[in-house]
Amino acid sequence: MKMPNDIRPDGRKFDELRSIEIEAGVLDQADGSARVKWGLHTKIISVDPRKEAKIRNLAEEYYITLRGKEGKKLLVEVPEKILPHIEDDLGSYNVVADGFKGNVAVVAVHGPREPIPRHVGDPYRSVVRFRYTMAPFSVPERKRPAPGRREVEISKVCKEALQRIVFAEEFPMTVIDVFAEILAADAGTRVTALTAASVALADAGIPMRDLVSAVAAGRAFGHIVADLTKFEEDAPDAVDVPMAVVPGTEEFVLLQMDGRVTKREMDDIIELGLAKAKEVAELQRKALKEKYARVVENE
């Protein structure tokens, strides 16, 4: 079957975000919290094992993953959106289960609170601290629990994105601690963490100029795309640009780039990222408001 030209390996359009589910106020002990699930909804299907070679071929072009054998059948995980496009190639199949392939982040905010150690405190403003950690089982090969250099760098850029968004001068001599834990990863963990962190800060009642909305855009397989998956990050021409934006003012508070692009491409990527960040902002707002709607329903 011939693929229409404007579909990506997971079935999305070039400017389409993955599914983003945000829930605010998910932890009891934290002053503010949020959980974000950012990824692809998939179907686990079982097919005739004789199709294995054909499916492995398909897996070169599309973001489908073989899951191994169960009984006499071969299990394949297929992003929902691409399934209709490859049905002919799959032949007959049964849907065995629903799956989710993406990022899961849980963020807690503790603060404003007394600075410990004391010397960390600033007499003029609250100090925002960010600690990004990944569970050993969040990545394909088990990661040792201790934070590595990548985690330290991500923590730094996230902290810098949030420090000025908070009205820190209202809480001198305090710290605002943000802890982000990644439980599952599939390209875009820092973007997921920061999006969740912004919601957690608001959930904690900390005064902010605005939310901070993060998203990644870039290039893969010859096209400028929004929200790359791992599959796209591994493309030979891949460029990944995570960014975070203040939706009300369009200011960029986080921006990193990995790859090689022309200035024109970079402009396009930034433009796309900005538009998508605003979509993320809408979802963040909804999540915060939904928390209160939940309350009224439950009574």
């Binding site: 969040s138 088990r142 599952a184």
Partner: peptide
Amino acid sequence: IYHHADGSAFVDLGGTKVAAGVK
């Protein structure tokens, strides 16, 4: 629930929450 874990579980016991993953 955690895609890369070979086995995973999330438990909420009266508000105490623990995530477990097997690799």
